[in-house]
Simulated scan of single mutants.
Amino acid sequence: MPETQPAVGTDSIAAAAARLREAAATGIPAAPVRDLIGPDDVQAAYAVQLQLTAERIEAGATVVGRKIGLTSVAVQEQLGVDQPDFGILFDDMEYADGAVVPAGAILQPRVEAEIAFVLKADLAEGPLDDARVREAVDYAVAAIEICGSRVADWDISFGDTVADNASAGGYVLGTQRVSLREFDPVAAEMTMAIDGETVSTGSGAACLGDPVNAVVWLARQARELGAPLRAGQVILSGALGPMRPVTPGNAVQATVTGLGTVSVTFSE
């Protein structure tokens, strides 16, 4: 996360935000923004994300949580980075378990299955370590993240995806809520199917070794940014297996051992 002002000029940050804003408004994916902010300038990329987030809040949207991305070592290596990223979850991004996502609601949708955590306490003060984060978690729940990219053909660098709110689109939470006293995220096994065919498998260990580790990382970054995690917020901790594209008419179901199933369908 940025600790200093980005080296990239404010005009370039504004231009990148405008490009992504236009893509979201028109439903037409845009060219990558790395020509404006660079492919790996962390400060500049988050500056764009912060500007777009502020605009959405000013327009009436409410922040309900965060999503963590790039928790897989393989994906980090692919994009040439050594850390996860995060984006903002807004109130209009949630779909109920079993819901139908309207066509065009999310640009270039792709799905991944993960563990979500809902907080019962703020993570704003004191040491933000494993024990503190576990104490702050109310429950874990199976989740499907619907990633979406405002960048054409998902042609993204690290800078592109961070600027584009970490490619956040929507999310679905299951209905089986389990406390961490009864559930070990590391041992959890995930299977995701599209139209009944298994397309992705994985485990909790694939998410930074432990999905709770991802939340610890996020809690520290969010506090450093000045927007700490709060009670009631939803935290999507990162994919447990490969992300897969979906097309109109697809039905997606994910199962996480210990947390049950969660599903969503995409309208034709």
Rank of each mutant, 00 (worst) to 15 (best):
F86W: 12
N165R: 01
A205L: 14
V8E: 01
I115K: 05
A222W: 05
D97I: 13
E145S: 00
A105M: 09
M93N: 00
Y171P: 04
D85N: 00
A17M: 01
G126L: 13
I146P: 00
V212E: 03
D122F: 08
A231R: 07
L180H: 07
G258N: 05
D160Q: 00
D122C: 13
S237P: 07
N250K: 14
A45S: 13
V64D: 08
A163T: 00
P228W: 07
D184A: 12
F86E: 06
E58Y: 06
V141M: 05
A74Y: 10
G80A: 09
L229F: 01
I88H: 03
A31C: 07
Q76P: 03
A7K: 10
A59Q: 14
D40A: 13
A103W: 09
G60L: 10
I194H: 13
G226S: 06
S12K: 07
F90P: 01
Q51N: 10
D138G: 04
A44P: 02
L89N: 03
A23N: 08
E268F: 09
Q78C: 08
A17F: 01
I88D: 00
L70F: 08
E114V: 10
A7M: 07
S200I: 07
E77K: 08
R177D: 08
A18Q: 02
A187L: 15
Y95M: 02
G126D: 12
L259D: 07
E224D: 14
R110Q: 14
T175L: 15
R110L: 13
V252F: 10
A227W: 05
R19Q: 14
A14Y: 06
M1F: 03
S237R: 03
E77N: 14
D92S: 06
S200Q: 12
A23Y: 11
D82Q: 12
P242I: 10
L236V: 01
V216P: 13
A166D: 02
A18K: 00
Y46H: 03
D129I: 04
V141P: 01
G27R: 03
R34Q: 06
G174L: 06
D91W: 00
E197M: 15
L70A: 05
A45I: 03
D41T: 05
S203W: 02
G196W: 05
T71M: 05
V252D: 09
R21D: 13
P245M: 08
A15M: 07
D160L: 02
D184Y: 12
A205H: 14
A16E: 01
L208E: 11
L79Q: 04
R19T: 15
D153Y: 00
S167C: 10
R34S: 10
Q108Y: 08
E268M: 11
G258R: 04
L259W: 13
F117I: 12
G238D: 07
E125N: 05
R150H: 06
